[in-house]
Simulated scan of single mutants.
Amino acid sequence: MEKVNKIKDIFVNGAISPDKIAKSIANHSGKTAIGAHSIFLGQIRADEKDGKSVVSMEYTAYRDMALEKAREIREEAFSKYDLTCLHIYHSLGEVKVGEICLFVFTSSPHRKAAITACNELVERIKSDLPIWGKEVLDDDSEQWKVNR
Rank of each mutant, 00 (worst) to 15 (best):
K3W: 09
I7A: 15
F11S: 07
G14F: 07
K20A: 15
A22K: 12
I25Y: 03
I25D: 01
N27E: 15
H28A: 08
K31T: 08
A33K: 10
A33L: 06
I34D: 01
I34W: 01
L41I: 07
Q43D: 06
I44P: 05
R45I: 02
D50A: 14
V55E: 12
S56L: 09
M57Y: 11
M57K: 05
M57T: 06
Y59S: 06
T60G: 13
T60C: 10
A61T: 05
A61F: 07
Y62I: 06
R63Y: 11
D64C: 02
M65A: 09
I73F: 14
E75V: 12
E75H: 13
F78C: 03
K80C: 10
Y81T: 02
L83M: 00
T84F: 07
C85Q: 07
H90Y: 04
E94F: 04
V95Q: 01
V97P: 08
L102D: 03
L102H: 03
F103Q: 00
F103G: 01
V104I: 15
S108W: 03
S108G: 07
T116E: 14
A117H: 02
A117S: 13
N119I: 05
E120C: 05
E120G: 08
R124A: 15
K126E: 02
K126Q: 05
D138P: 09
D139I: 03
V146Q: 13
R148A: 00
